[in-house]
Amino acid sequence: MTGTATKVWALHLGVLAALLAAQFVLPAYHAGNLARIMVLAVYAMGFNIAFGYTGLLSLGHALFFGAGLYGMGMLVALAGWGAGAALVAGIAAGGAMALAVGLLALRTAGVSFMIVTLMFAQAGYLTILYYTPYTRGEEGIVIDRAARVLLGFDLSQDIIRYFAAFALFAAALLVKLALVRSPFGRVMVAMRENEERSRMLGYDPFRIKLAALVVSGIYAGAAGAAYGLLFGYVGASFASIQYSILPLLYVLLGGAGTVLGPFLGAVLMFYLIDLASGITTAHLLVVGVALLVLVLFAPKGILGALRDRGLKWLP
């Protein structure tokens, strides 16, 4: 087991080291992309905790992302809060929203759970539009550059933005790694695999699922709040249904139930669209075909397929 643990930590710390170095090696354009991808990967990691590990397929995670984004954004724009306090508030908003949704939605399971979360997210999206006088609805608002200063660092600077995104990503990755390797993480997986049996073993499925969902919401909220602060824009499109499906795609592409899968999926999806739109005007077609090919030949995602073919230790 210790050999496995070494390999696991080596791999993840290696990935983090590579990302840290990437800022100095990569051209500005790709470094900028990577900053954005890391933030979105945190969102996808949160989704993965609910879906990949605990088996909760939510179609409403945009609500948690949106709660983080608007929780932070509204406080900065309307109440004049500083970036640090607003960031914390955004993260809390994501978790609180997940708690509220979970208390209701976790009474259902399977497809009903998908639809209930979808509905709650849709209601959240419409609420943002309803308060257009404050939120500017779909048009969104700009977070003032002066307000985007965290602990004295100006987040609108490329290098600082990269390291802020990296810090968030690294923290999220390590916490997640520790989480899934902890006893609680095994209980989450047990819940996915066989809820009845875990109940008989004395676990309370509702509380475990709720806890997983809240952690997932905190991740999504953190990603949302960070996105708004790093890129200066808060808009309703981030709370729409597309942004609920996005992390699902990332996770399924990279490999559900793997720690690095969401990041890999986010990188792939980003460059798939970016490169395809450079080659052809019909880039949606390329993306569609690529998805079909991937799902046909690696239905468990890329890391899922690797895990099946030998890398059994992959967390």
């Binding site: 779909e138 969104g140 608002i141 890129f231 499109s237």
Partner: peptide
């Protein structure tokens, strides 16, 4: 479209 403009403008400034 307005939301594209508002979403892009901060980056243009930076």
């Amino acid at each position: 479209f307005s939301h594209v403009v508002v979403g892009t403008a901060p980056r243009a400034g930076e």
